[in-house]
């Protein structure tokens, strides 16, 4: 759709899609913003509801193509796959957390850890895939992304060799699968 090659959404430069798609995307943004307003305010005075409606209308009118850019089938499938990915990554975080906790309480800490910076290359293209992988690596304990550029080169600081060995591995495969990219 309008997702450009580096994953960013071009605004303004593309000619308007069909009028209906733009309106649907506007409507979805409006509903989402209004739900956020209701959750955050928690009150149901008519005045507050009107204010929320007006401000969500302005936000949705100006930025409708940011949150739900392309309502194609591809976008929907990516969303579904991503929702399946989130519980897996949280489970992975919990497992690796205990490892770090064990390290922190270990009496001979300085012999246990072996900090190192490793570099690996991937063939991820889109920005959102790279950002997802970088954030997942940082959230998984024992590894922190030092830098990741748009060519897909990752520089990771790992706290011991066990977390360093596990690195590109299965997480990269999953992220590549979500966004339909080659590894």
């Amino acid at each position: 759709m309008t997702v450009s090659s580096n994953g960013g959404v071009k605004k303004g430069s593309t000619p308007p899609r069909t009028w209906f798609k733009a309106f649907f995307s506007f409507l979805l943004t409006f509903v989402f913003m209004f739900l956020c307003w209701i959750v955050l305010s928690g009150k149901f005075d008519p005045l507050l509801l009107w204010l929320g409606g007006i401000s969500s209308f302005f936000v949705a009118y100006n930025f409708y193509d940011l949150l739900f850019p392309a309502l194609g089938r591809r976008y929907f499938i990516i969303f579904l796959k991503f929702s399946a990915y989130v519980p897996w990554v949280i489970w992975e975080i919990i497992k690796a957390n205990f490892h770090l906790l064990y390290l922190a309480f270990h009496p001979r800490l300085k012999e246990m850890i072996d900090p190192q910076i490793i570099t690996f290359e991937t063939h991820l293209k889109s920005d959102i895939a790279i950002a997802t992988l970088a954030n997942s690596i940082t959230l998984t304990p024992g590894t922190i992304t030092v830098s990741a550029n748009s060519d897909g080169v990752f520089k990771v600081h790992a706290i011991d060799s066990q977390s360093a060995d596990a690195l590109p591995g299965i997480m990269l495969t999953k992220v590549a699968q979500i966004f339909g990219e080659t590894i």
Binding site: L100, L109, P115, T140
Partner: peptide
């Protein structure tokens, strides 16, 4: 307890 700056970030940021 962690030695060095980068290793300190691991428990700080994630635990």
């Amino acid at each position: 307890r962690m030695p060095g700056f980068y290793t300190r970030l691991h428990p700080a940021g994630i635990l």
